[in-house]
């Protein structure tokens, strides 16, 4: 495989010591295996996700993302931007599109950027890592590199909302995307293509501000995984991962359930299937241990 290079936007939640640092670590490992070089955007800033809107209105918000794109265009010339966080990807791509459609907004964003000595060209494509896997590399090629198939592990592919909407992966349906199931099959595990909660929202940022309302939805996501006899849930989204994994105790307390299902990243599946260690796959970053993956990694 020829080496691929991208300009990398890790996002706040994927920094060292942050809530999704296990995503960052497993993505690094996955990229080593797939011969992908990620060049971090120097001095990137937070995009304000899908929650900053109420305090930072339209132009300030767009300008935040514009700064990242401008930095990338200056320092990582001619490289497509890749994000691993759905919200980062969405915010950045949305900003790029809005500023393409609206010339006066584009001019004003550049006026603001000038205060930080930057200039936006806005010609850079903005991709999600899932697009790199599915479109640039291809699931068939992923399958070829598998050394330790994840045999006998049944995995509910939870795509969530923002990896899937409004942009999603080209050619996939918004209501019933298949790429995650295909990827799960490619690494030798058993997918559940009819997992009915695969694109159900978990509450997103409202898991913090409206915990009861969100946990009711999270409960449904987990329940359906159990009903489908899944051993674990896999997702591409750091907020999905956190929301579905970390509140299981609180949900058990409230609803008298006995949830204890691991929630892992697609990148961790690939890392383990490619023969890497549990620590390279960041399995030590799980709150609910993914024992079956640890066992494969030990083999």
């Amino acid at each position: 495989m020829a080496k691929r290079e991208y300009s990398y936007y890790p996002g706040c939640s994927s920094q060292k010591g942050a809530s999704s640092s296990n995503l960052m670590k497993s993505v690094d490992t996955m990229c080593e295996e797939l011969d992908i070089q990620l060049n971090e955007i120097p001095d990137w800033n937070c995009c304000s996700a899908s929650i900053g809107y109420a305090s930072g209105s339209e132009l300030p918000r767009l300008t935040l993302s514009a700064r990242n794109i401008a930095l990338s265009e200056e320092h990582n010339k001619n490289q497509e931007i890749v994000a691993t966080c759905a919200a980062c990807w969405l915010a950045t791509k949305e900003a790029a599109e809005r500023l393409k459609e609206d010339e006066s907004m584009f001019a004003e964003a550049n006026q603001a950027l000038a205060e930080a000595g930057l200039k936006l060209q806005n010609t850079t494509p903005i991709k999600h890592m899932a697009e790199v896997i599915v479109e640039d590399i291809g699931i068939d090629s992923i399958k070829e590199g598998v050394k330790k198939p994840l045999e006998g592990i049944k995995i509910a592919g939870y795509v969530g909302c923002q990896t899937n909407r409004p942009f999603g992966i080209a050619g996939e349906s918004f209501e019933n995307p298949m790429y995650l199931d295909n990827l799960i099959e490619a690494v030798g595990a058993d997918a559940i293509p009819t997992y009915e909660k695969k694109v159900q929202c978990c509450g997103g940022a409202l898991a913090f501000s409206e915990p009861e309302k969100s946990q009711e939805m999270i409960k449904g996501i987990i329940e359906a995984a159990y009903d489908n006899e899944a051993d674990m849930i896999a997702t591409p989204c750091p907020l999905c991962q956190a929301n579905v994994e970390i509140y299981q105790d609180q949900i058990n307390e409230k609803y008298n359930t006995k949830f204890n299902i691991p929630v892992v990243y697609y990148s961790q599946l690939i890392a383990v299937a490619y023969g890497r260690s549990a620590s390279d796959a960041a399995l030590d970053g799980q709150l609910i241990a993914a024992k079956q993956l640890e066992d494969v990694a030990k083999k």
């Binding site: 930072g56 700064r67 006026q111 205060e115």
Partner: peptide, 14 residues
């Protein structure tokens, strides 16, 4: 400081 100046400007423009 550059980031804050930039956002301040964006806010003013808006």
């Amino acid at each position: 400081s550059g980031l804050q100046k930039m956002i301040k400007k964006a806010q003013e423009l808006e």
